[in-house]
Design a protein around this nucleic acid. Structure first.
Lengths: 349, 349
DNA sequence: GACTGTTGCGAAAACGTTTTCGTGTTAAAA
DNA sequence: TTTTAACACGAAAACGTTTTCGCAACAGTC
């Protein structure tokens, strides 16, 4: 087991100084061709590679970006990571992943763990618990120490940083508009409580689409679910909630759900109750997931272009990291809005 | 924007030496209580945290582990990551993710990028291209430099390292046995070409289950697909292949598919051809995915316990990293086999 | 022969830590 | 008073780089 070879070892072997080795390897004009050849040959033979950690320390730059997400077993988030990794790698960066597991304290711990020199900047999506508690000190502290943050999807208006979001309002509005155009008269929405910003925005989109379609929204048709509850593990609870919705509103002919699971479950319940999709009830979901594509019938959804979000976030962050800080002209933050698109499949006419 | 405070700055402010600050913060007995208090108070005020990079350099230990996977937008792999992250975090490690995208060269590049000091060890699953080319020099080189590797799922017998695998053979055999027990007489398998080790093993399990059930395997019922082809993007091709299988074998009454996509598509095609599931044809998949659970009918699958694989791999790696290397008693490698379990849902009787 | 310029290389600092060892001061023991 | 021991702290090395600067040796110019 041979240890990794260092400049010092090469220097000792060849009886030159460390500086000479370093310069020879970087092809400095200071070094004679003879010496260069000797050193380079030796380095190649022993497969020398500069130690990243030493470089990071010297350059005060790790070329690594941290991404903190609430959950990784989730199509949306894993696609975002893919996007981040893609551009990060292309631009010479590594990606270090932290999972908050939707918990405030894990989010804080993860960020503190990485903020002490391990990375150059963050890309993150805020955990539900943090959103609820509205405690954002860790974001502000991190930024005040000169570490840039790019937030995506779940963001907070009050925080000053780059953001990549989807036009939740417009996406939802278009989806519901589609239902209205298809002659749906009683369109229900299955959404989350309002503290989840995306849920709130999508609900607003729903309301506006209805109004523009000349339909008066009815409170009975709006099902707001507690999003902290883990429905994936307790599908039956979700089913009951939705069944209740259908049973007390027999005339529902359209459903807009703010995520994949809600939409799928809605279809399942509807089918159980004897409705045909899309003949009796049309359903649209909101997601970037794989379930929709393979569902029966395949689910029409609002696509969020998760990978593109990841790519955009990574580019934003790296741009900021590599920007020349001589130009001290008041730091500017951007919010990039990714357009959603409606992927029409079989659950709508 | 205040820079992160360092020992040196604290030392200068308080007019003591760097050593004293360092010792005071670690509560060394060498330092007087007075000085300790002074230093600790100051450090707290300025929110001092030791720089991880400097520590890594000093300790020649990064407390970071690298995980290289072929694809992240994939339930199995993201669950593995979750498992890895869980125990890594618990044991004080960070996780850095590299995606090979099933490509040999990206796998090599990613590993080289991380092997130069950025991490302490690897957890990885081999890309398809690497498996095909059978070029494993990068694994051997990495290990010969003293960096441990733990492989999971897609492994190579010839390589000496810790491994975490699923009992593909047994899992497949049990699944097919279940079909046999359910009186299926013409059981087809949809699998991959043999260079994918897991595909091969699962096929063997299928064969043995048939033989034990007194059924003679028929070549016509074995569909081996080229796994490098991206079926997720070209579902129609996959459908045609499977449709061909059904059409030339009208008496098929059971299907065992080595992954989720194949199984789901088989169900879809079968339904299209007028078969009822599970009445006419029973289907079992192999996976840890989410599609199976939400399919209609819900798919019976062999669960791989992906998260557990990740946890096991992480523990194996960290154990090795933290093992006292004084005991030079011939390094031992383990292969941990995770038991699969059959999750029975609606696609079987 | 004295100056200038070029070439080729090494010493040392710096990045931020931890840790070993040395040392000056003071108090206790002889 | 002298010796010893305890105490409190600082200097310096080390981890592996890069880079600035200084300097010796030599060649060329006047």
């Amino acid at each position: 087991m041979k240890r990794k070879v260092t400049l010092k070892q090469i220097a000792r072997e060849l009886d030159v100084s460390i500086s000479t080795v370093s310069k020879a390897l970087r092809n400095s004009a200071e070094i004679s061709d003879d010496t260069k050849q000797k050193v380079q040959a030796f380095a190649k033979l022993y497969n020398y590679r500069p130690n990243n950690i030493a470089l990071s320390l010297k350059n005060r730059k790790t070329n690594t970006i941290g991404i903190i997400i609430p959950e990784i077993v989730h199509h949306f988030f894993s696609k975002v990571i893919r996007g981040v990794e893609l551009v990060a790698n292309k631009r010479g960066y590594n990606v270090i992943v932290g999972l908050s597991n939707e918990s405030f304290s894990k989010e804080v711990i993860n960020m503190e763990m990485l903020a002490n020199g391990s990375i150059d900047g963050f890309i993150l999506s805020i955990s539900k618990e943090t959103l609820q508690q509205q405690d954002y000190h860790h974001f502000n502290e991190t930024m005040s120490q000169g570490m840039p943050i790019v937030m995506f999807d779940r963001v907070i208006p009050e925080i000053n940083c780059d953001k990549v979001i989807v036009d939740d309002f417009k996406g939802a509005k278009n989806a519901v508009k589609k239902l209205v155009d298809q002659q749906c008269k009683n369109i229900a929405i299955i959404t989350t409580k309002d503290y989840v910003s995306v849920g709130k925005l999508r609900t607003q989109g729903y309301l506006e689409a209805l109004e523009e379609g000349g339909i008066t929204p009815k409170a009975k048709l709006i099902l707001k679910l507690e999003d902290t509850f883990n429905f994936e593990e307790h599908l039956d609870v979700l089913e009951k909630e939705i069944e209740q919705l259908f049973k007390s509103n027999k005339k529902i002919d359209g459903v807009f759900a703010v995520n994949e699971l809600y939409a799928l479950t809605a279809m399942k319940v509807a089918r159980k109750l004897g409705f045909k999709i899309p003949e009796d009830i049309q359903v649209i979901g909101f997601t970037d997931g794989v379930l929709s594509k393979h569902a029966t019938p395949a689910l029409t959804t609002v696509s969020q272009h998760a990978q593109q979000m990841g790519e955009t976030a990574a580019n934003l962050l790296i741009d900021k990291l590599e920007k020349d800080f001589n130009e001290e002209e008041e730091e500017q933050f951007q919010t990039v809005v990714i357009e959603t698109s409606l992927v029409e499949r079989e659950s709508t006419k």
